[in-house]
Design a protein around this nucleic acid. Structure first.
Length: 546
RNA sequence: GCGCCCGUAGCUCAGUGGUAGAGCACUCGGCUUUUAACCGAUUGGUCGUGCGUUCGAAUCGCACCGGGCGCACCA
């Protein structure tokens, strides 16, 4: 995997465009496609070749090609063919040419499965076709038909008898020995990144596989996959700041969802017993190697289960996914071996804090004591009002990063869990767990709160906190409370961060590596205007007023 | 939001006050059953943008744009 690399930035092209007014295009610093003399020269060269192809009667953008084998299929089929062996087996391959040697005598054709070398020699290719190879460039697509051989050096090759241009590319790819490493350029022009860096494609394929295997697991257990609204009047179900958008016809502000929880529970109330949604959610918060403003979350709810059963369920599901993606439950993430094999440790928040800090939170009863403890530990308490909230902060500050192997942290303070059923035995706590792996939160699950009176009281308390200035406190969703009043069966529910799971399974250091098109700052922030900012501010104030 | 670092040719980078550089890519020529093929020649740059300091700025200062990392927030 590519590690993050210092990015030289380049950002001055706009004025160039105006000055030169050329038609050339430039992948400047890989960061933007725009125009200047040098890239125009490289592009013009390809345009010249394009025209020569056309003049020779070649359609450089044909409609189809009949392939007989992929590169990987050929390598498997002929894996026992010894070096310096020719066959008379005729095959057709196609793909993008990324490397060429000896003036097109050898070229590497890349398809989705891998690459296969083609061999263009005057003994097997008509002279005109041989000459026409000079009109190709790295980056072009080609379809080639010929016989299979293995070279002296052991490279399986196709001795080309005929070939077709399948696409003439106009822009040069950043192909060089050092690779395409500029981080910004890679994320902005992900299609180029995908062409050049094969492991990017592998990572995204693994992501696809992870989600597929998750669906298989859930569908196999009788779950229904459902869809719930992205645009919401109240963004509830999690502690996070939402994005705001506007509906013109209704002339109202709407929020992008920050969780799917409240709607999925409405479905449980409506009679579904097993539902899940794998959906994009949006949180208007910081960006980092572990946070993207939009990310994908699995949330599932199953009636008649509690958080104990849910932990077994989550363990099994994630083992299934790990096996599907990595073929094993033992993976290595950033040099650390992580074992998904059962059983996963289950430790209460109190015991975890006790182990690491030597402090028994059970002995702390008053907020004054909690405050003194926090200040001793150097922990800032912005919105904390109760000891439970302080304990959670202590956990996050001192313990979280130490939980490397899959660990369920259980039994959270009730104050920070407004949608969770109270613990059956332990006053002040709820039946909730969070799953930590490599010091990061990966899932959050609980015995769902089904007591409507308790639910109303908890959300009213959240609304009060919101009023007091904590804009991550949850809003009072009266329709949801009404739904719960109609009656909700005992239910277990969990949310799993898909992106972070994929980071683990693909050994990716940044969340951006597992997202095909991660959120990027626009290139010309100024062009968006300060007016937008003004609107945002106004809207933020509105949110607070709610 | 704060701090540190970065932005020079299509790509990867050198150049810290005195004529804008290298390798690869591109183009041309040679050679060739190669593996980053090789050899030779050529081409290619408002040194991120603007303003300043200076006889002189890629180099020093300020502002801005863009980015990376860390912290904060969060999952």
């Amino acid at each position: 995997m590519k590690s993050p690399i210092q990015a030289p930035g380049k950002a001055h092209a706009c004025s160039i465009v105006k000055k030169l007014g050329t038609v050339g295009a430039k992948l400047q610093g890989g960061k933007r496609i725009t125009m200047d003399t040098e890239s125009s020269r490289l592009r013009d060269e390809r345009l010249r070749k394009l025209n020569e192809l056309k003049e020779a009667g070649v359609n450089p953008y044909p409609y189809s090609f009949k392939r007989s084998h992929t590169a990987a299929q050929l390598k498997e089929l002929y894996k026992d063919l010894p070096p310096e062996t020719e066959t008379q087996d005729v095959v057709s391959v196609c793909g993008r040419v990324l490397n060429e040697r000896n003036t097109w005598m050898f070229a590497d054709v890349h398809d989705e499965s891998g690459k296969i070398q083609i061999f263009n020699h005057k003994e097997s290719l008509p002279e005109a076709d041989l000459k026409r190879l000079r009109l190709l460039d790295k980056g072009d697509f080609i379809g080639a038909t010929g016989t299979i051989r293995r070279t002296k050096a052991g490279e399986l090759s196709v001795r080309v008898k005929s070939y077709e241009v399948l696409c003439k590319s106009l822009l040069p790819l950043p192909l060089n020995w050092e690779g395409f490493t500029d981080v910004e350029a890679r994320y902005r022009h992900r299609y180029v990144d995908l062409i050049i860096n094969a492991e990017v494609r592998e990572t995204l394929k693994k992501r696809s596989l992870a989600i597929r295997s998750m669906r298989e697991f859930l569908d196999g257990r009788g779950f229904y996959e459902v869809e719930t609204p992205v645009l919401q009047v109240e963004a509830g179900g999690a502690d996070a700041r939402p994005f705001i958008t506007h509906h013109n016809t209704l002339d109202i502000d709407l929020f992008m969802r920050i969780a799917t929880e409240l709607h999925l529970k409405r479905l449980i109330i409506g009679g579904f017993e097993k539902v899940y949604e794998i959906g994009r959610i949006f949180r208007n918060e910081g960006m980092s190697t572990k946070h993207n403003p939009e990310f994908t979350m699995l949330e599932l709810y199953q009636a008649y289960g509690d958080y104990n059963e849910l932990m077994d369920f989550a363990e099994e599901m994630l083992q299934h996914v790990a096996k599907a993606v990595c073929g094993t439950t033992k993976i290595t993430y950033q040099g650390v071996e992580i074992d998904f094999a059962s059983p996963w440790r289950r430790v209460t928040m109190r015991d975890a804090i006790l182990e690491v800090t030597g402090i028994d939170t059970d002995t702390i009863k008053t907020m004054d004591e909690a405050r003194a403890l926090a200040s001793k530990l150097g922990i800032e308490l912005e919105f904390a009002e109760t000891p439970g909230e302080v304990f959670n902060l202590i956990f996050e500050e001192k313990v979280e990063a130490t939980l490397m192997q899959p660990t369920f942290l259980i039994d959270y303070p009730v104050e920070i869990s407004p949608l969770t059923k109270k613990h059956r035995d332990k006053p002040g706590l709820v039946e909730r767990f969070e799953l930590f792996i490599f010091g990061r939160e990966h899932a959050n699950g609980y015995s769902e709160l089904t007591d409507p009176l308790d639910q109303r009281a908890r959300l009213e308390d959240q609304a009060r906190k919101k009023e007091a200035g904590n804009d991550e406190a949850q809003p009072l969703d009266l329709d949801f409370i009404q739904a719960v009043e109609y009656g909700m069966p005992p239910t277990m529910g969990i949310g799993v961060g898909i992106d972070r799971l994929c980071m683990l399974l693909t050994d990716s250091p940044s969340i951006r590596d597992v997202i095909a098109f991660p959120t990027m700052k626009p290139l010309h922030k100024a062009e968006q205007g300060e007016g937008d900012e003004g609107v945002d501010k106004k809207k933020s104030e509105k949110v607070k007023a709610k």
